[in-house]
């Protein structure tokens, strides 16, 4: 089994190659988001460094969102091109689930929070005590206080709560005052989406045969576009 996992949904760009049992390569960059320039060369480098070509792959996994609208589309459009041209099937992974998976086998309530701007976060809450994340709340786009209130109720069943992602720092005061001593702060290497985590999740999905059609695979934005909100459309 050989899986290429790619992610450009947040300011982080990541690419990893996995054989299903080990991560063969993992490249990541959280510096001056220029996915439009750096993403495809990173994919090329990962494959070349490992002596692989696209046709060797069993699947390409991509994060479908939530995250930056443009970032999500750069990732998804790139893999659609790769998949259509090579015939390699696609696997779609939630950005939030991938983040939560960084903390797999922990008893804490794990909540990915991404900066959604406009004073909101994209967030969810997972039980990660098993081999893969089990969603308990969300995903949602909401003010950080709403997220804190909702997850606070669930967190009572856990020894503590962990927040992962770039939505933590801008709203840390809200989270600290809401969760108090139950909040466990984690080191930086767990705070960002990891292509290696995405590849491992994708390997599980591949075993279950959860492949996506190249034409049907869609971004998962959570939010409508601003213009649709103004027209009074409902969230889908």
């Amino acid at each position: 089994m050989l899986i290429l996992a790619v992610d450009s949904a947040t300011p982080v760009a990541g690419v990893a190659l996995s054989d299903g049992e080990k991560i063969i390569a993992e490249y990541s960059q959280n510096f001056k988001q220029v996915h439009s320039e750096k993403f495809m060369p990173m994919i090329d480098k990962c494959l070349k460094d490992c002596g692989c070509i696209l046709k060797d792959l069993d699947a390409i996994a991509v994060t479908s969102g939530p995250g930056s609208f443009t970032g999500i589309r750069i990732g998804m459009a790139t893999v659609k091109g790769l998949s259509l041209g090579s015939g390699v099937p696609l696997i779609s992974i939630s950005t939030l689930e991938a983040l939560a998976f960084n903390m797999v086998l922990s008893d804490y309530l794990v909540c990915p929070v991404l900066n959604a701007r406009k004073n909101e976060v994209y967030a969810a809450a997972y039980d990660v005590s098993g081999v893969k994340p089990d969603i308990l709340w969300g995903p949602a786009a909401c003010p950080p206080q709403v997220m804190a209130d909702e997850t606070g109720k669930i967190a009572a069943n856990h020894p503590g709560i962990v927040l992962l992602g770039d939505g933590f720092k801008p709203y840390q005061e809200i989270f600290r005052s809401s969760f108090g001593t139950r909040l466990r702060e984690v080191p930086p290497h767990l705070m960002l989406p990891r292509a290696g985590s995405i590849a491992t999740l994708a390997a599980m999905k591949l075993k279950q045969g959860a492949l996506e059609d190249v034409h049907a695979i869609r971004p998962y934005y959570i939010r409508l576009s601003e213009a649709e909100y103004q027209l009074g459309k409902e969230d889908k």
């Binding site: 696209l54 750069i74 459009a77």
Partner: peptide, 11 residues
Amino acid sequence: LSFAKGFAYAL
């Protein structure tokens, strides 16, 4: 552009 890069690369 992203699609074209992926497609050209694959072919």
